[in-house]
Amino acid sequence: MTSEPARALSLLKNAPVFQGAQEGDLRPLAALGRFSCLSRGEHLFREGESIEALHLVSGGSVRVYRLSRGGRRELTLHVEGPRQLIAGIAAFQSRATYPAHAQALQTPTEVLALPLATVREAVFHTPALSAAVIAYFARRQAELLGWVDRLVFSELGERLAAYLLEHAAAPHQLPTNSELAALLGTVPELVSRKLGEFYRLGLIVLERRTVRVSDPAELARLASGEGV
């Protein structure tokens, strides 16, 4: 059976946030990592709580969302799957607190927690780790700007195609239509209709809430704004 530190090291080596870092720099972090499992709907953290650990998704998916001032509406900011970091930028701020809520979308969802103080110390004093983390945050900023651009200027079909392509590497557990609608800036009925259209066109395979991309080339064409 694979030991927990070995599993943690494998996850860290394959996580985009540590891409380019040396294995030797990741081993001390892996040794302190702890895995935990969440059930669908269970919260990993809530907005305003102090950040004590850096979290990486090992399996399943996690939704990060904000509530309106009255608490009646939710806005999904992003959904993170395997090997992705959750609320990473906030963790490196002084007096770090979580800027949003995070909850599991699947049962089980497995998350690796790394002690924040240890991670910060390692990143601040290890050039290879620093370079990896800075490059990752730069990529995430570019992705965020691209997503905001699509949200404001593109049609729903483009946004949904882009979302599906982002999760095309493996079968992906979709959020509920309400959650996906919040993420795409629309309403659940339109999300359901567009998913059905993509399914009928053979662009995706849908089994319950698990989706697999079967025609990435056509989805890429739609995501670029052609023929939506």
Rank of each mutant, 00 (worst) to 15 (best):
F198D: 02
T186H: 02
E166Q: 12
L164H: 00
P171D: 10
L145H: 15
A117T: 12
S58V: 12
Q106C: 10
F124Y: 15
A169W: 10
P82K: 04
L151R: 12
P115T: 08
A223V: 10
H125D: 14
E47Y: 07
A90G: 13
I204Q: 01
Y65E: 05
H43L: 12
V57S: 05
A128N: 05
G24C: 01
R95Q: 15
E121R: 10
L77P: 00
R208V: 04
E207W: 03
G88T: 07
T186V: 03
T186I: 04
G24S: 00
G157M: 04
T76Q: 11
A6T: 08
R83G: 03
L164K: 00
S39T: 05
L54P: 06
Y163W: 10
R27F: 07
T109I: 05
R212Q: 14
P127S: 06
G81K: 01
T76F: 12
V123Q: 06
L67P: 00
R200C: 08
S3Q: 01
G157K: 05
F45V: 05
F18A: 07
H167D: 10
E179D: 12
A223K: 05
R83H: 11
P99L: 13
I204P: 02
T2E: 09
S130M: 13
G24N: 04
R27P: 01
A168S: 13
A220S: 12
S39L: 10
A30I: 02
A122L: 13
S154I: 07
E189H: 06
H125T: 14
L222F: 03
F153P: 02
S94C: 15
A6P: 00
